[in-house]
């Protein structure tokens, strides 16, 4: 464990908490892409199956359970509790355009042709594109509430910090996970446009981020 990875995990946790609390307190999921949240729940489900096969550390186990629980709670709030507030006509990204290539690639490019390893690889590739429906929804509505942009900021920051963690681990322990690194870089690149808007608009105190 190093400071970059710890900061990344904390940033990820903060993002998930921000969204969950926002939906719960505002009793609304307007502007939130339910599809992205379902994809994130799928990412955690397919990635954390090793909860049942191997114990790594208390931290590892606890964080995996927390991420799983909170992502399912978010999906529950969007599609069950506050479903009448769900903005379905703007959440129209075709997720099959993400799932088909990701499934295909995880069968082609993996470390071992075993169910657990292919599911892990699937979760890594899927996480890189899981935010697409949410970013698409924001470009479609042309705006995002500032709390939603904070959520996206911490979500994007988490994988950027993981890249720093991979650089650190490469130089200190010769650790290199090619699939995770390549996918993590692609994932972070997708946020760059948002990061620019976030810094130039939201941090300037705008109530909400209005896209140009």
């Amino acid at each position: 464990m190093n400071v970059f990875r710890l900061a990344g995990d904390v940033s990820h946790l903060v993002a998930i908490i921000i969204l969950l609390v926002k939906i719960w307190r505002s009793k609304s999921c307007a502007g939130i892409s339910g599809k992205s949240q379902v994809l994130f729940a799928l990412v955690f489900t397919t990635r954390y199956l090793d909860l049942f096969t191997v114990f790594i550390s208390a931290y590892n186990t606890i964080m995996k359970v927390v991420f799983l629980a909170m992502s399912y709670a978010t999906v529950y709030l969007i599609y069950m509790r506050f479903r009448n507030m769900y903005d379905s006509e703007n959440d129209t990204f075709r997720v099959e355009f993400l799932l088909v290539p990701v499934i295909g690639l995880s069968f082609l490019e993996n470390y071992a042709f075993t169910p657990l390893e292919i599911l892990w690889t699937f979760s890594i590739f899927l996480e890189a594109v899981a935010i697409m429906p949410q970013l698409f929804m924001i470009t479609k509505t042309g705006e995002a509430e500032s709390i939603t942009t904070h959520y996206l900021f911490f979500l994007g920051l988490y994988r950027a910090l993981y890249i720093a963690n991979w650089v650190w681990r490469y130089h200190t322990e010769e650790f290199f996970d090619q699939i995770a690194v390549v996918s993590g870089v692609v994932q972070t690149i997708f946020y760059c446009d948002f990061f620019y808007l976030y810094v130039t608009r939201v941090l300037r105190g705008k109530a909400k981020m209005i896209l140009p």
Binding site: R5, T53, V54, N60, Y111, W120, F176, D177
Partner: peptide, 10 residues
């Protein structure tokens, strides 16, 4: 060059 078995990263 990877953690075998369980993944130590989240």
């Amino acid at each position: 060059d990877r953690v075998t078995g369980g993944k130590d990263e989240l």
